[in-house]
Design a binder for these strands. Sequence first.
DNA 1: TAACTTAAAAGTGTCAACAATGTCAGGATA
DNA 2: TATCCTGACATTGTTGACACTTTTAAGTTA
Lengths: 229, 229
Amino acid sequence: MAFSTACKLQEPVTIADKLFLDLRRSILVGEIPAGKKISEPELATAYGVSRGSLREAIGKLENCNLVTRKPNIGARIIGFSTAQLMEIYQIREAMEGMAARLAAEHITADELAHLRKILERHRQEIAQRQDSSQQDADLDFHFCIIQGSKNSRLIRMLCQDLYDLVRFYRFRLKSGFHRSEQAFQEHNLIVSAIERRDGEMAETLMRHHIRASRDYARNMLENVPQEES
Amino acid sequence: MAFSTACKLQEPVTIADKLFLDLRRSILVGEIPAGKKISEPELATAYGVSRGSLREAIGKLENCNLVTRKPNIGARIIGFSTAQLMEIYQIREAMEGMAARLAAEHITADELAHLRKILERHRQEIAQRQDSSQQDADLDFHFCIIQGSKNSRLIRMLCQDLYDLVRFYRFRLKSGFHRSEQAFQEHNLIVSAIERRDGEMAETLMRHHIRASRDYARNMLENVPQEES
DNA sequence: TAACTTAAAAGTGTCAACAATGTCAGGATA
DNA sequence: TATCCTGACATTGTTGACACTTTTAAGTTA
């Protein structure tokens, strides 16, 4: 599967880049389990590339916060903790709140139309109870608003860095995560505020929305503890 | 000079790490001019290391957002634009606002005492008109609050990633940037709110403070355009 | 048996050479 | 003269070998 990152990253021309994207996908999807140590020789032979290229790819993964490295010890896939997930939600609340505020000022008519289309798709998928694709619709919604902020660094920090982590957790918590009806209503309110160009309200609603997601996730994790992969 | 990053990064044990810190310093201080292309063979011989280690160091610089790389073309120090600086301020407003809110909940008594000490130092330096060290006091203040948030990822994103950019710009805009008396007053209010454990107010005040800094910077840049280094 | 020592094995960091790509200057053609 | 081709040069990407560190396991001693 290909990840719709919304923010266009150029086609991978170099081996290290292809490797990076390949590994990133494997990690996000869970093919490589969380917390696993990365053996450079092993992976290099597995992918048929030299260790140099692999190390460069690992360096990029480190930037995405998907692996951590210790000198002379090695790299390992990041772990998995409720506390970290809560931290991410807090950061999202702040940054996406700002993104929504800016989007209310800068979003284009085309993007707004696209946003409405995403909402419509989301509505249909709820009616048909397609849980899996609702998650995509949710991501697309958030990406679109972030994109609308027109703050290029904010876009990069969110879409490129933070949302890899969001996906990392989302793929490992698939089960029982659908507060979609509620989320859909909240999305609607946010878009309305943006349409009215009410940045203050858009920010407030977005923060509320993300906080509600966080509380929901926390409840799920406390009551139905996930297995460590 | 050594940068007090507040968030402890481990001692550089590997050559690439030392190189990274060295280059980072050179860039931030302005020894390497903004926008300059990096020649791998040139730098490698200059520092007496192999190109491999240098490339790893450049990779890390890319994570700090201090250089940009294009495949088969090369790396260059980031440019310098008012627009980008404004984007950074917007992000700081969101993230440091959140940091202040969290600090009001989680900061320790020791950290609060330290914060008060920083304020006192700041006050003295204003009285003695030591413009240069006031900048350090300002950075220390912000670092201390971020640290108090106890959100480890937020701390890393701000101290490690974003504040390198802040320093990058600050070193190139030294001239005529002292709204210290005003900033000092704002700092005081923020600390008071944190002491009262009033997170809502702490966030509001921090956002106001950063927005004021932004407006001030924008005015300076519009009226006294800086030379491109 | 348990703890310490030591040597082998595995893994990471570093390097220099090779391959592929991009850049630039000179000349040919319209 | 301006544009396009062409080939030499310079730079980046990639690789395999070497050096150093960590880990493991065997062996020794109390």
